[in-house]
Simulated assay, not measured.
Amino acid sequence: MQKRPVPSFKREQIELEHCSICKGKAVVKGLFYELVCADCNGSGWVVWGSKLVLSSDELVTQLSFKLQHAQREISALKVSPPMAGPQSQYEQSNRLGAGGTNYTGD
């Protein structure tokens, strides 16, 4: 009995890039109307470097990985550190000016 390779328990992330034919739009301009891109099977994505087309179930998984990564980046950008230095007094209201407005000392 031969040993078989064990399937991995984790999906690896495949680097994707936009299709070079349709530029990631999934359609190409025909003579009278738009046609589904034949090089990427209408997905707009191919494997980076090799230009191979993924199956639809693998493509869904890989696009989910990309979406999760983008959402993590967006949430990291939303949490901005508090400003320090002279610009901080211009960004926040201290209500020390006339009528409770921001006083900066200028």
Rank of each mutant, 00 (worst) to 15 (best):
I21P: 05
Q2C: 10
N102S: 12
L96T: 01
Y103D: 13
E73H: 00
P82V: 05
Y90N: 07
I21C: 12
Y33K: 15
S8T: 11
N102P: 03
G49M: 05
N41S: 08
Q87I: 09
Q62G: 13
Q92P: 00
Q71R: 11
Q89V: 11
C22H: 10
A70L: 09
K3Y: 07
S20F: 08
W45G: 00
S55E: 11
E15R: 11
A26S: 15
N41G: 05
C37S: 14
V53T: 15
W45C: 00
R4I: 06
E34S: 14
K10S: 15
S75Q: 13
A38I: 03
L16I: 09
S43P: 04
V28H: 05
G100Y: 04
V36H: 01
W45H: 07
P86S: 08
M83K: 09
R11D: 11
P81W: 05
L54G: 03
T101L: 06
L35Y: 07
G99D: 08
P82C: 02
L52D: 14
V36W: 02
G85D: 04
C19N: 12
E15C: 11
N94Q: 10
V28R: 09
R11V: 15
K51G: 00
C37F: 13
R4V: 06
K25N: 13
I21G: 04
